[in-house]
Design a protein around this nucleic acid. Structure first.
Length: 372
DNA sequence: CTTAGGG
DNA sequence: CCCTAAG
């Protein structure tokens, strides 16, 4: 998929090529299926081997996405030129994101909100951006396919790798991650500018594109989601962990508007659970950050909190957490959790549960100190 | 900033 | 998963 779209790009020199590209993108778009819907569903699989951490899926939609963007952009440019509305000299970068959004999301309900939010954030965070905003913001993005990328890259790199990039990266990732943008703007939105890998990813994008991205596996590691990437994050690259596209579309499909919460659910795979358990076995309960760092260093998603939550659920599911409800009930309730997990896992869960109780308070109410 | 708890 | 209150 990406290939085809990429292939057309070189033709940009001739106006014809351009047009072609646009059309193509459009076609793709209208054809309906998302490119990233290759993953039917993860839940049914019951992996027995331990090394299936990357069974999730290959996230290739980034490239197509970009081309899409460019296509849009081109179209937009044309339109703008016709209308003569904009005063931009070069190529009207600014509105890009808007169009992207609009086209990709027919409803385009939150466009305005989003826009305002964005600008607000920018203003708020980095006042100076606004000045070169016009020049850059769309800059690389726009020309990615059309113009020699070298220029853009140079510009981007030499200039603050920060501001313009982040500026650009946000819309893109947002679009992918958060179809029904929430005007409120969450933590991750704000933080996204601090995330090193995201920046990097964005920076690479153009290169890959023009080079016909040979081995670009996880073009957009973007993990806009909340969470302190911290210093140890760069590692998350190597693993080419993947996507987010999955849950993205899952969200879109299943709950569409859904209640604000639970936007991106990601199914816990068995290996993940096992890693978690191992981690707890080593560190005990309560040191989620450490566990995350050690066991999930390669996994960008899964914050320490997620780990803790998962553990809590496991406990409940395993019945170690005696509660009012009897085991049967619990099991029934958390059937989905159980069904894909081998019994061996649950045995371990129980062991650990007795070893280091989760609430960290013994039944008597005494606080249980962690050892190491 | 990290945990714990509750929604 | 998300959010908030505590250390």
């Amino acid at each position: 998929m990406s290939e085809s779209s990429t292939a057309t790009i070189p033709k940009f020199e001739s106006k014809n090529g351009w047009h072609q590209k646009t059309v193509k993108c459009k076609l793709r778009c209208s054809s309906g299926d998302k490119w990233n819907s290759q993953e039917p569903g993860e839940d049914s699989m019951c992996p027995t081997s331990d090394d299936i951490e990357d069974l999730d899926e290959l996230d290739d939609d980034a490239k197509p996405l970009i081309s899409l963007v460019s296509g849009k952009n081109a179209k937009k440019v044309v339109q703008a030129a016709k209308a003569g509305t904009s005063v931009r000299q070069k190529r009207l970068r600014k509105p890009t994101k808007r169009y992207i959004e609009e086209l990709s999301d027919p409803k385009a309900k939150h466009v305005m909100e989003r826009k305002s939010y964005l600008s607000a954030t920018l203003k708020d965070k980095r006042p100076k951006i606004r000045s070169h905003d016009e020049l850059h913001s769309g800059g690389a993005l726009t020309c990615t396919p059309k113009e020699p990328f070298s220029e853009n890259i140079t510009q981007a790199t030499s200039k603050g790798t920060d501001e313009p990039l982040h500026l650009r990266s946000k819309p893109v990732s947002e679009r992918r991650t958060n179809p029904s943008f929430i005007s409120k703007g969450r933590r991750w939105s704000i933080r996204s500018q601090n995330e090193p890998y995201q920046v990097r990813a964005v920076k690479f994008a153009p290169k890959e594109l023009s080079l016909t991205g040979p081995s670009a596996q996880a073009p957009f590691e973007s993990r806009p989601r909340r969470g302190r990437p911290k210093k140890s994050l760069p590692l998350s690259f190597l693993e080419s962990e993947d996507d987010e596209s999955e849950d993205d579309c899952v969200k879109k499909r299943t709950c569409k508007k859904s209640n604000d919460r639970r936007k991106h659910q990601r199914m816990w795979t068995t290996p993940e659970v096992m890693k978690l358990i191992d981690g707890i076995a080593q560190y005990g309960t309560g040191r989620w950050t450490d566990i995350k760092k050690l066991m999930f260093s390669s996994t960008a998603y899964r914050t320490p909190i997620d780990l803790r939550d998962k553990w809590r659920n496991l406990l409940r599911a395993s019945g170690a957490q005696k509660r009012k409800s009897n085991k049967k009930e619990v099991k029934e309730k958390l059937k989905d959790v159980v069904r894909s997990l081998p019994s061996s896992v649950f045995r371990r869960v129980r062991e650990l549960a007795s070893l280091h109780p989760y609430p960290r308070f013994s039944p008597g109410g005494r606080y249980i100190r962690r050892k190491n």
